[in-house]
Design a protein around this nucleic acid. Sequence first.
DNA 1: ATGAGTGCAAAACCTTTGCACTACC
DNA 2: GGTAGTGCAAAGGTTTTGCACTCAT
Lengths: 141, 141
Amino acid sequence: MTTQEFWNKVKSPEYKVTQPRLAFADVLVQNQDVMLSAESLYEKTKTIFPKTNLSTIYRNLESLERLNMIYKVTTDDGLNLYKLKCASNEHHHHIICTKCGKVLDIHFCPFDTFSELAGKAGFTITEHRLELYGLCEDCRK
Amino acid sequence: MTTQEFWNKVKSPEYKVTQPRLAFADVLVQNQDVMLSAESLYEKTKTIFPKTNLSTIYRNLESLERLNMIYKVTTDDGLNLYKLKCASNEHHHHIICTKCGKVLDIHFCPFDTFSELAGKAGFTITEHRLELYGLCEDCRK
DNA sequence: ATGAGTGCAAAACCTTTGCACTACC
DNA sequence: GGTAGTGCAAAGGTTTTGCACTCAT
């Protein structure tokens, strides 16, 4: 997704174009394939628009989450990581590099098998979270 | 797992038997198939040993995590839930009732498929987290 | 007796919120 | 001009930590 495409998607009377948002959008677009913490998104945004405030980052993450534009995970040690949602509308999962945060899309989902197994035990699955962690080629070296 | 079995497993010069721990162990054993927050584990422990302190709960969760006795998940809204690890040594996953926390073991893992797909893209999976959420039979009613 | 475990209170951590001010449309 | 967005500082919730005291072995 380009910055242009990003703005085409979100711009509306309810989502105005402001200076912090312009900077933040750049950061998100530039890091589409990496999961970053609010803090590092903040740092990166500040290099573009130095006056940006951390709470603005959180507020914009929330706004974009409402627009279904943000993918978020919580790591084992309780840190939240964010990225722009993948362009692909197809349901898929991710493998996240534990060192650099790089993300690989995995277009395979075993949901049906799980659904069947759960159903036999009276459970109805409403949500599933599948996150794979590992090392990408670069970080393994 | 019975309380007896629990203590057989953990008792050592490094994990002494104390009153708060006796109470906490009871709570964990009684709720083996439910995921609970630190706060509710605390409340439940207090009914057995009222002097128990919240920090003791956290410290004991940490000790037991080091002993590989605790299974922990983070919910979408950032709450940490805990339970005693399943007795089964076999690798498996869970479906968690979003209403009552009840847990169902799912003895099926699509790891091999993921591993293969990831390998093709140069990723090495070191960890995977698969959590299914839904409603158990009782809570659906 | 000795060190692990504990209670209490304070701090730390990340995230959210209130308020007055700014700047988009 | 009106409202959404912002910066700042303060508060929020959960988890961790320092310290002195207690208790298990």
